[in-house]
Design a protein around this nucleic acid. Structure first.
Lengths: 344, 344
DNA sequence: ACGCGTAGGGTAAACGCTTTCTAGAATCGT
DNA sequence: ACGATTCTAGAAAGCGTTTACCCTACGCGT
């Protein structure tokens, strides 16, 4: 096993100083053509690659973007991650991925690790419980990261105010829910069950808010019996429909907090002998890739997941005054399929 | 914006030398309790975090594991990534994620970047085209990474031989296909269409091989008309069924190269008025989370995705003689659901 | 011919940590 | 009580780059 060559070895072989090698490599400083060629030959000869840590230590930018999310497999996160990875690559950055599984301690640990790494940007993804504890925690993160020269980005979660030292990139969560509910309402549905969603979670709360606003706009009273809470899983959707049916709550349509909940709901409806969309219309949220594969193909609120991720990186990397606390909101649209039918 | 404190600042505040601070932080070397306390207080006071690059430069391990895959959203990759991330965290490593989208140039670029980063392990995930060019490329990667002190891991792709300086962690791809096909055969099916799959890709080839072996074991002739190629998408499954039907090829069962292909196939069958499983049985591969949500719930070959990822990291990080070229093969099993029915 | 701006390149000081080497102090065996 | 250990901690030499600073040589306007 050869020891890996350093810049000195390259300099020696090329017969120049290390400074010159460094200059050839970074390509900023003027270097004579003959010299450049000699250096490049030596680099190839020795199969030399720079030491990123030495460079980061000396230079002070690590060229790393960090992504912190709940998990890596839920399509919502996976697609945002995809956008982040894409844009990071585009911007010649590497992409560090960490998961919290909702554990604040782990999150704290990760932010500390990112300070150690001098990440150019730290992107926190997804809904949260907006408590005082959370705000305070974010404030500490922001301070720590700022001192380390990192940008903090809140992605797919609400801004903490214009004075908060972080970039926010969210999508119109409440607006999407408003559209979805309005779609059902204008199809004649009045008894619309709202399913899924951890109570207090900003994502679910926003979706619930859109649901409420749409009902109000149509002057339909909000019936608390139609609103259920739980996590965002298929099981939740399945059980919530079962309970609604068992309790004899009447409804002709279902607005699920996301596509998993919708899938579970459809399964429960089918099990109970209800046909979708003939007896009950169903609409989901997130427009997951499997939505079109369900039977019937699921109508869902489409989110700009990848663009969310890309924008987060783009804004974080853009230097200049005031660039450290921007706020962007992306739109959504409904992907119409076969799970919604007008009420006759 | 305060400048971030260094180890010297901590040393100064605690009234000790930097060496002592370093030792308190790494916790290996014996330090008097009183001293340790003083240092820890100073660390907390200053909100000090070490500089990972300085540490890596001096120490020489970066505590980073790199994951290189086709993309980040396909469940196959996402679940392996999940396992990798989990085990990396477990082992106090950070996880760098890169995607190639099948571009060899990008892959080369990434391996170079990982050499720069001194990643502890570089994990290459997923099937490939096993060409001479590929072997040669891998050999160059292995050499370069070995010099940089990194372990190379081939995950979910075949080993390059016991002498090749890389760890291999694969699953029994061909065996899974054998089981799936046997399941169909022992249910009485004889005309089984094999769908999807890029020709030459090790993953698809292995699945095809299992299909063939099962047919032979049941003394059923292999009919080339039943085997179609394409990518691993829903569209492929959809179109391949359409073509089979249009060509008047007879079949009573479908073995799809993965669950996406299976979903597309089921859609095409439904569109053609064929019922699944009454008229045609369908079996998928990968056991994606949406498999149980399809109608009917899809029977599929379950893969130990997460364990694949975890094992890759575990083996790569374990030091000692011979640990650099191990070969592990994990098993699969069939997740039985409702898309297969015995032929009467 | 002279001064000057600039291209080209070398020297050496950081960057922030780990670790070896060294040494004083405290403890122990006899 | 005294040499031999054992603790504890500091000094300083790297680790591999980048970059500020300095110097030479050359082209050019006047």
């Amino acid at each position: 096993m050869n020891k890996r060559p350093t810049i000195r070895d390259v300099a020696a072989m090329a017969g120049v100083s290390v400074a010159t090698v460094s200059r050839v490599l970074s390509g900023d400083y003027p270097v004579a053509n003959a010299t450049r060629t000699k250096v490049q030959r030596a680099v190839r000869e020795l199969d030399y690659v720079v030491n990123a840590h030495a460079r980061a230590l000396s230079g002070s930018t690590s060229n790393v973007v960090a992504l912190v999310m709940y998990d890596v497999v839920t399509p919502f996160f996976a697609f945002i991650a995809s956008g982040v990875e894409y844009q990071a690559t585009e911007s010649d950055r590497l992409c560090l991925v960490c998961t919290t599984h909702g554990d604040p301690d782990r999150e704290l640990e990760i932010v500390k690790l990112m300070r150690e790494q001098h990440a150019d940007a730290v992107i926190l993804v997804g809904g949260v419980n907006m408590t005082d504890d959370y705000r305070e925690r974010m404030y500490r993160y922001a301070k720590g990261l700022e001192d380390a020269g990192s940008r903090l980005v809140l992605c797919g979660r609400p801004s903490l105010g214009p004075d908060f030292p972080a970039i926010t990139v969210e999508y119109d969560n409440s607006g999407g829910a408003f559209s979805a509910t309005s779609h059902l309402l204008s199809s004649g549905h009045r008894r619309i069950a709202m399913l899924g969603g951890p109570i207090g979670n900003t994502t679910f709360d926003a979706r619930l808010d859109g649901y409420r606003r749409a009902l109000e706009a149509f002057r339909v009273p909000v019936d608390p019996a139609l609103i259920s809470h739980g996590d965002m899983s298929q099981e939740t959707g399945f059980r919530q429909i079962q309970r609604l049916l068992a309790d004899g709550v009447e409804f002709t349509a279902v607005f699920a907090a996301n596509d998993f909940v919708a899938a579970g709901a459809m399964r429960a409806l089918r099990a109970a002998g209800k046909r979708v969309p003939d007896d009950v219309s169903v609409i989901g949220y997130d427009d997951t890739p499997f939505a079109p594969e369900l039977t019937p193909a699921l109508t869902s609120v489409h989110l700009p997941h990848e663009e969310l991720g890309r924008t987060a990186v783009k804004l974080a990397l853009q230097r200049g005054e005031g660039s450290a606390r921007q706020h962007v909101m992306l739109g959504t649209h409904i992907a119409m399929r076969d799970s919604v039918r007008p009420l006759i």
